[in-house]
Design a protein around this nucleic acid. Structure first.
Lengths: 215, 215
DNA sequence: CCTACCGATCGGTAGG
DNA sequence: CCTACCGATCGGTAGG
């Protein structure tokens, strides 16, 4: 790790910032620009402009444009996965866990709208090996939902005739879609959306027995 | 409308085709390339290569790259909207209509996977006026779902405490998401997916009374 | 449809 | 971080 050099000429007279701090700014700006223009539509020039540096100077921090996308995507995916896994491990029945997982997932999505949108839109811009590095072995995210649905099904809390994969995809669709319409300060809070979507999802797949016991 | 000129030199010896036929090929190829690479990642060179013509020759058919995207997107949107509107008008209760609309929407999505994916991913690449031209006044698509949910709610078939907008977005999320995981020849047929997603959606929002009457 | 081009911009690099 | 640069490619055009 090289250290930034000392007193060279600056572009707009600002103080040079520590590497870590500048890196954080870089990622924040890159996230925003990828969100607005898409990965391919965004240029390093756009990003450099907003940071007040020259395009070539970005290579002091990165090896390639792709590094920026990878950081944005892997961070939001790792954090989101941690949220749902934590909620899948607390005390409770599988159906109760699933409800909590859905709420956590939706709230995390609302609170990380921009990086989540980049993740869901631009994952395909990563080469396949880095894509796998992000997603982990198997569909980790999807697996959390499907496993809980299967467990709930064995307990008679989810309808027996339902395919757990299909049910998981239905729930993930309903919840992930939030990234397309949620607006901070809009008609609904993340908590409202989380609890309402969870309610609809649970009712959509649960047995009458489980629903009666819940009330 | 100019007619293609007669006997000029050809690139690979093939016969020159009628304008309409060639235009259909152009759109088909463009749809596929936009799907694979995204609109910004796709070049007119890519498209011309697959058609066996030169990049500049594309301008015999189009005025700009954007024309291609606009055609792809407006066609699939128009067709999909026609499907759900037709099903919203047949005989039946609002809840029955909604179920039919969901089935139709999902099956249309499965059978038009590639253009649907381009629509859902690249709409934002269109300038705002052409975007509005595609979507029509207000959110036409979303409106079909929301209106039916509101009507069903007035009849006591959808839970009274549910926000119809939120419910519509939940259903649209679950069903639109199909474009990300459906594979022709995979584990599920479009009919299966349509009927299962509809079942989950209806159960998720309906009152117990309506569900009992349905069975 | 092809020939033959153009200006602009892209991601990226050597050297300091 | 800046200076100064490169090869490649982009969408698009004039003229036939």
């Amino acid at each position: 790790m090289r250290q930034p050099a000392g007193r060279s000429a600056r572009r707009s007279g600002g103080e040079r910032k520590p590497r870590e701090e500048r890196w954080a700014e870089l990622i924040e700006v890159a996230t925003q620009v990828f969100y607005e223009k898409g990965y391919d539509g965004a240029s390093l020039q756009d990003i450099a402009d907003r940071l007040g540096m020259l395009k070539g100077s970005l290579y002091y921090y990165i090896q390639s444009k792709e590094d920026l996308l990878f950081d944005v995507i892997s961070t939001v995916h790792r954090d989101g996965l941690a949220v749902v896994r934590a909620r899948a491990e607390v005390e409770g029945s599988p159906l109760e866990k699933l409800e909590s997982v859905i709420v956590g997932h939706v709230e995390h999505t609302c609170r990380n709208l921009v990086p989540t949108a980049v993740f869901l839109h631009e994952l395909s811009a990563l080469p396949i090996d880095r894509r796998k590095e992000v997603l982990g072995s198997e569909h980790a995210y999807q697996g959390v939902f499907r496993d809980l649905i299967e467990q709930a099904q064995r307990q008679g809390d989810v309808r027996a005739d339902l395919d757990p994969r299909l049910a998981a995809l239905s729930v993930l669709g309903s919840t992930n879609w939030v990234y397309r319409w949620f607006r901070p300060g809009g008609a609904f809070t993340p908590e409202q959306i989380g609890s309402e979507l969870a309610e609809m999802s649970i009712r959509g797949i649960a047995t009458e027995k489980a629903l009666a016991a819940r009330a």
